[in-house]
Design a protein around this nucleic acid. Structure first.
Length: 293
DNA sequence: GTCCAGGATCGGA
DNA sequence: TCCGATCATGGA
């Protein structure tokens, strides 16, 4: 899946078997990676700033030691997982998946920080991605930890829980700010919440997540999938619902039926199938009554 | 100005 | 249990 090629000038060069930064960072799973030129990407993840570039074969991680890479980023970038294998299996399912996999080739499902994922997707409800990013940035600037490059890490639970609702409102999150505040307070009083979630059976973990204010089925599934708790989670948002109805059901279908179908049809690859389908549907506007290209 | 966004919640049928 | 209205904000 990966091979460290060299470690020079404090930069680490790593061959990665199936990786496309653009698809990975823009497929909707994360909100804190950006690129000025499409070559070099900078993200804020796992409490620090990280920068990389990709030449089609190998990835250069800037200002990174081999030790740090092995300790943190192998897991974050899910480098132990064979995405070529997953793509082969999914491509053979049907023509739709074949096209979706080609379109999103190089997506890797990140294993992001649990709390950041939880609050990010709490904010994402009934919202658009550019604004989600702004709200997360604003929250970080106001309540997060300053990093060496002038940016800010995602706030800790305590900082969010101790903040007044009025101050959280300055991030312009609208009605979601109350969810942020209430969920943070709840988690502050449950110090083992995160560890407990990772130990539970996925179905039970989903239930517990949904007991948090502002967390419904979709947000819970995003947390399960994107923080590496359950890779078979299948978040169903407007786009996934539409693409599933359009390509598979040919009629309006409720979320429960779609979820059951995904389990039976995609199996262990439900999560990554969802990611390819979401990215494909949103970019191709599948399910919308438009004839643009 | 209108429509929409990686939905969840609440009250009433 | 199911359904529709509502929620705050701003991108397109």
């Amino acid at each position: 899946m990966y091979r460290i090629v060299s470690e020079e000038n404090n930069n680490l060069r790593v061959e990665i078997s199936d990786f496309n930064p653009r698809h990975t960072f823009l497929c909707g799973q994360c909100f804190r990676w950006d690129s000025e030129d499409g070559e070099r990407w900078t993200g804020i993840a796992l409490g620090q700033s990280i920068s990389l570039s990709w030449d089609g074969n190998a990835c250069t991680f800037y200002n990174m030691s081999k030790q740090e890479f092995m300790d943190k980023w192998v897991k974050y970038f899910d480098l132990e997982t064979d995405y070529e294998l997953a793509k082969n299996i999914l491509s053979k399912k049907d023509e739709h998946l074949y096209q979706a996999v080609i379109h999103g080739s190089g997506i890797r499902l990140l294993r992001q920080d649990f709390y950041e994922t939880l609050f990010s997707f709490l904010i994402s409800q009934n919202n658009n991605i550019p604004r989600i990013k702004k709200i997360i940035d604003s929250l970080s600037m106001n309540f997060g930890i300053p990093l060496e490059n002038g940016r800010y890490g995602f706030p800790g639970i305590t900082a969010l829980a101790d903040a007044t609702l009025e101050s959280i409102n300055t991030c312009r999150g609208g009605y979601r700010c109350r969810y942020i505040s209430d969920t943070a307070k709840r988690l502050r009083d449950l110090p083992t919440f995160r560890d407990d979630i990772y130990k539970l059976q996925p179905e039970k973990a989903r239930e517990v997540l949904m007991s948090l204010p502002g967390v419904g089925p979709k947000v819970a599934d995003c947390v399960l999938l994107y923080s590496g708790i359950d890779r078979t989670a299948f978040p169903i948002d407007r786009w996934v619902k539409r693409v599933m109805e359009t390509l598979y059901f040919k009629k309006e279908t409720d979320e429960k039926s779609i979820r059951q179908f995904s389990r039976e049809y995609f199996g262990e690859l439900s999560g990554i199938a969802q990611q390819y389908l979401f990215y494909y549907a949103r970019e191709k506007k599948i399910g919308l009554n438009v004839t643009e290209q």
